[in-house]
Amino acid sequence: MEILLAIVIGGLFGSGIYLLLRRNPVKLVIGFALLSNAVNLLIFVCAGLTRGVPPLIPEPEIRPLAEIADPLPQALILTAIVISFAMLAFTLVLFRRTFETLGTSDLDELRTTDQ
């Protein structure tokens, strides 16, 4: 399973990087989304996979009964998901405004700041 997921991560990174290098802003944003998914999955997989044991403490115990999945990377990823959504929204809106204001859809045409 690890090898399969490693290949999935590689695939997501590759396509994310490729899209990030496009001159079309929409593609860039989608590349950004793929890349943040790839990073989240990377952290998740690198922390080690434990099938089906969520990090919960059942009533009325005071500690988990079995070996649990590592909770720390999960906490990191949870916030990362929300933050990358916020950044994605910001980027998307930024490009929308750029398009509305400057009327160009080619990032290569946005070379100076003072037009």
């Binding site: 998740f44 044991v53 990090p55 999960q74 990823i77 949870l78 998901i81």
Partner: peptide, 10 residues
């Protein structure tokens, strides 16, 4: 994948 590997919150 998150569900499968014990991360329901995620």
């Amino acid at each position: 994948i998150f569900i499968e590997f014990g991360a329901p919150d995620l």
